[in-house]
Structure formats: C-alpha cells, structure tokens
C-alpha cells in the first residue's frame, strides 16, 4: 500500500523541476499578456522601470528561486538514497536531480529575455 505511493512520488519527482519550468512559463506568458492588455508597460514605478518589467522580473526571480529549491531538495533526496558526487546512482533520484538542473537552466534561458526585450510591441 505504502510502497505504491512511495514509488509514485519518486517517479513524480523526476518531473518536479520541469513542472516548475512549465508553471513559470505559463505564469510569465499570462502576466505579460495581461500587463500588455492593461497598459502596465506605460505605468512607471521605481524610476524608469515600468510596472510590467518589475512584475515580470520579480516572477522570473521567484521561478528561479523555486527551481533552485527543487534542485536542492532533489539533491537531498539523492544523498539520502546514497548518491554522492558525480556518480549517477541511485538512478531515479539522480535523474530527478539532473532534470531539476536542466529545468533551472531552461528557465533562465527561455524566460531570461524579460530582462532586456521590449514587452508590448
């Protein structure tokens, strides 16, 4: 009974990093669309920064932070299961940990453009 749940969670953790990536992606894309629809890019806060920019960058930072948490938790799971250094054992936990890193990198790469591109044209 318990074994089934444990197995399911271990498998689910292999996707955790990219689930965060997906959530971040959806969040930034939706907030960008909402912001453009309501003219957030023309509301200036903090000097020359637009409200739109501030919100998007904040979301990016939150996403990266969450992604980092997943990386750390995956690493802890992996160590608890006996993995260390660059030896890729145990399998499930190592894959989860590598996937979390890949997802963190993906978040930075695919959402990084909020740092410098024009938001609403």
């Amino acid at each position: 009974m318990i074994a089934e749940r444990v197995s399911a969670w271990r498998i689910a953790w292999m996707m955790a990093g990219f689930v965060v990536w997906s959530a971040a992606f959806v969040a930034l894309y939706s907030v960008l669309s909402v912001g453009c629809a309501f003219g957030w890019d023309e509301i200036l806060v903090m000097g020359s920064l637009s409200l739109q920019r501030v919100v998007l960058v904040a979301l990016l930072l939150v996403s990266l932070g969450t992604g980092w948490v997943v990386v750390r938790v995956s690493a802890i799971h992996r160590e608890a299961a006996g993995g260390a250094g660059l030896t890729l054992k145990p399998f499930v936990e190592s894959v989860a940990w590598l996937a979390a890193w890949a997802a963190l990198g993906s978040t930075l790469f695919s959402l990084g453009p909020v740092l410098f591109l024009t938001s609403c044209y």
Binding site: L117, T118, Y121
Partner: peptide
C-alpha cells in the same frame, strides 16, 4: 546563446516600436 541573442537584437530593431 549567441544566435538567440543576435536574433533578439535584430527583432528589437524590426518591431514597430513608437
């Protein structure tokens, strides 16, 4: 990274900004 950056810079020049 190099290619995407170049394409973004070019894209910025082409969009009909005010």
């Amino acid at each position: 990274t190099a290619l995407v950056t170049a394409a973004f810079v070019l894209g910025e020049r082409l969009i009909p900004k005010p």
